[in-house]
Design a protein around this nucleic acid. Structure first.
Length: 212
DNA sequence: AGCAAGATTAGCT
DNA sequence: GCTAATCTTGCTA
């Protein structure tokens, strides 16, 4: 049964209150933690995508579409937005603040704690395959539609400080080819050369992150 | 009330 | 590369 080090504590609400594109980059290297009665699982975020309604045709909140599903996107930053995609649950961090329906999709993790737990959940052994996709990582951590609306500042599902990536790559988002010009927005971010990203793609440019 | 589409994945050809 | 899985959402009527 995996236990976490004591210095792993949730990031504060303030962390989520930055522009969505900044947050999408700031999330890289952060630790995503899920605690359940069965155990603890956690991994470093290595890939994200920004969805910025109402002007983003690829976002569920495009044109301020406000429904039972998108409602949480209109609420405060730092809440959990989960939804079903075919047979899979996808996990997002709400951003943009109240009345600005924006979110960051978490697309891939690098497994860190509770790896046996994740292997059991996924029914496989290969490490990268455990969490290198948005539907895979939710299954590995046990994140479900039930987590919809949960504040990420609190257990059992929260984010904590991890490490600072040296370099961040930028490219087009995945799987939104029918979203008009939005398909070309460079709103996908990943840790350069990280082997746990969901797909390899040519980076349009690369940020060199200064060490702090 | 009916229906087409989907921010995906696994397995097979 | 192709397709089924599986079900909710949201749009049309």
């Amino acid at each position: 049964m995996g236990e976490l080090p004591e210095d792993i504590i949730p990031l504060p609400q303030k962390f989520y209150e930055q522009p969505t594109l900044d947050l999408a980059k700031a999330l890289l290297g952060c630790l995503l933690v899920k605690e359940t009665s069965e155990g603890v699982a956690a991994g470093y975020i290595v890939e994200t995508e920004a969805y910025i309604g109402p002007g983003d045709m690829a976002a569920h909140s495009y044109n301020n579409r406000r429904t039972a599903r998108t409602e949480i996107m209109f609420q405060r930053s730092g809440l959990t937005y989960t939804y079903l995609m075919h047979t899979h649950c996808l996990f997002n961090v709400v951003s943009g603040g109240e009345e600005n329906p924006e979110a960051v999709l978490i697309r891939a993790l690098e497994p860190r704690f509770g790896i046996e737990y994740m292997k059991n959940k996924r029914g496989i052994e290969d490490l990268p395959s455990l969490t290198n996709g948005p539907g895979k990582l939710t299954k590995a951590l046990g994140i479900t539609i039930e987590d919809y609306g949960h504040p990420l500042t609190d257990p059992p599902l929260y984010l904590a400080t991890g490490f600072s990536p040296e370099s961040i790559s930028v490219g087009k988002r995945i799987g939104i080819d029918k979203s008009g010009e939005a398909r070309d927005y460079l709103w996908r971010f990943w840790i350069t050369d990280n082997k746990y990203v969901s797909r390899h793609q040519k980076s349009e440019y690369v940020y060199k992150v200064k060490r702090t």
